[in-house]
Computed example of a mutant assay.
Amino acid sequence: MNVSGEASGPVVEADREAVRRCQAGEADAFRVVVERYANVLYGTAVLMLGDRSEAEDALQEAFLSGWAGISGFDPDRPLRPWLVRILVNHILQRRRRRFLRVIPLPEAPLPIASPETGPELAAEQAWQRREVAVALAALPADAARIVVLRYFSELSLREVAEALEVPVGTVKSRLHRALEKLRTELERGTGAELLRSHDSSAPQDGEAEA
């Protein structure tokens, strides 16, 4: 059983064959790549952007960039981390063009069976997810990229290393520093401040309860 989260042998071989066909100019081969990875990449885009329409645009841009750059891709390297890196770069560029406009994460469903789950708890957890998303957007591009690759795209450390073309040890040290920066942003209340300035439904300090 493959428990590392990395692609199994048959998938790697199929990717290798598809890449070689793409490099030979076969557009149909890239359609196979799109069909194989569209869902997982789209999920990452939605998580990062919180908007399905924007996620679709980012995904299309990423695949166009992938097709344009696949001639220089090494077929013996894993394909998925490379595609994820292209997508994440496009998304980070979109964020910077919008000056860190609030990008709420979609609200993940809470466990129905949990006795603690209620409207207040659900709202609080949704608020925390949004605050993390905004704090992440405030990080430097390199720090945001490595956090997204590891935790949003759920790549293994080895896959992140492949995507960034650095040793696994470098990934570990960069990830540690990035998480420290993210923690600092959260402690400073970066996410909360930006959310309050953009979201009229956000709780205001000192606001009386009805």
Rank of each mutant, 00 (worst) to 15 (best):
A123C: 04
A123S: 14
Q93I: 03
T117A: 12
E131V: 14
L110E: 05
E107C: 08
A123G: 11
T117M: 10
E120V: 15
P109V: 05
A133W: 04
N89V: 13
P106Y: 09
A133M: 02
G118F: 00
L92C: 00
V132Q: 14
R94G: 00
H90Q: 08
P115C: 07
L121R: 13
A108K: 11
A126L: 11
A108V: 08
E116H: 09
L92W: 05
R129K: 08
R97E: 03
E124N: 13
L92D: 09
A122Q: 15
F99D: 08
E120I: 08
V134G: 05
V134N: 03
R129L: 06
E107A: 14
E124C: 05
G118Q: 00
P111T: 06
R98K: 08
H90L: 00
H90R: 11
P109D: 11
R130K: 10
E120H: 10
L121K: 06
E131N: 12
S114F: 09
G118S: 06
R98W: 02
E107H: 14
I103C: 14
L136W: 04
Q93W: 02
R95S: 04
N89W: 03
A138Q: 04
A138N: 00
P106L: 07
A126R: 15
I91T: 11
L87W: 13
A108F: 06
Q93K: 10
R94N: 00
E124R: 15
P109K: 08
Q93C: 01
A135I: 09
E107N: 14
P109Q: 06
E120R: 06
P106R: 11
L139G: 05
L87T: 11
V134L: 08
S114K: 02
E116D: 10
P104N: 05
R98G: 03
A123V: 06
V102R: 01
P115N: 00
A135V: 09
A123D: 08
L92K: 03
S114Q: 11
R95F: 07
I103D: 12
L87N: 13
R129T: 01
F99K: 10
P109E: 14
L139D: 04
R98C: 02
L110K: 04
A137W: 09
H90S: 01
S114V: 02
V134E: 12
P115E: 08
I91V: 15
I91R: 12
Q93A: 12
P109T: 09
L87V: 09
S114A: 13
L92T: 01
V88A: 08
A108Y: 06
R96F: 01
R97T: 02
A133Q: 12
T117L: 12
T117F: 05
R94W: 02
E107Q: 14
R101C: 00
F99T: 07
Q128L: 15
V134I: 13
G118W: 00
R96Q: 05
L100P: 00
P104L: 01
R95Y: 09
I91C: 13
P115G: 05
Q125A: 00
A135G: 10
A135L: 09
E120G: 00
P115Y: 07
E120T: 10
V88K: 07
P111Q: 03
P119L: 15
